[in-house]
Amino acid sequence: MISLFVARRELRTFFNSPIAYIVLGGFLLVAGWMFFSTLFLGGQASLRGFFALAPVLFVVFAPAVTMRSVAEERKSGTLELLLSMPLRDWEVVVGKFLGALGMVAIGLVFTLPYAFSVAALAAPGVSFDWGSAAAGYLGLLLLASSFLSMGLWASALSRNQIVGFIIGLLLCFAFYFVDKFAVLLPESLGEVLEFLSVDYHFENIARGVLDTRDLLFYVTLTAAGLLLTSRQLAAVRQ
């Protein structure tokens, strides 16, 4: 699969730039704080507190990972080089997406020590719920996919990575925030908003309930973002 070569180059480039370490460091710092602050507040050896907060963190983290992805290549001109290679636009987009997902996955791997320490704090005789932890991580990856695909599109919109970051942030935030005032609205409308919410579906998965509707939601959102990015690349060619 040719996109994997593009993805590998993305990852390499990412870790060659200082921004990567700042973004990743910031992510781990905030994630650590989320792990342990919620832990001691709840007084329970579980990751539920962390998973409740994590989507907010990803609202910022995901667009920060994707902001350079296309914008930087447009600015430096290497996009012309890349797009004159025998690759289809969607192969480029998927490659960039997989690269970004790889970075998020690496970030998540670095949070595993937190999870292990929390598990180690479980009271004797009480078993740590590894099943729901795994479901939570899976949910985070799915949530990240949808955020990254939106961030990628945002990055493709201009040559300026800061613009890409802000648009990505707003988009991700919109999909996070959309159901937060649903209680105030009529029930039917509230349900629609809930269905659109990235957070709502994540909560379902983090609870350990793997429902195809939730999966389908993330897959659809991710695909839509990637499709928009492909179309944006086609627009850049005009």
């Binding site: 180059r9 390499r12 080089l81």
Partner: peptide, 22 residues
């Protein structure tokens, strides 16, 4: 291309390997 855009942060060998892959 005009102005010869290249991936600045890659090594020459790395870059040529990448091109040979894609």
């Amino acid at each position: 291309p005009e102005n010869n855009p290249l991936y600045e942060e890659m090594m020459v060998l790395e870059f040529l390997e990448f091109v040979s892959e894609v």
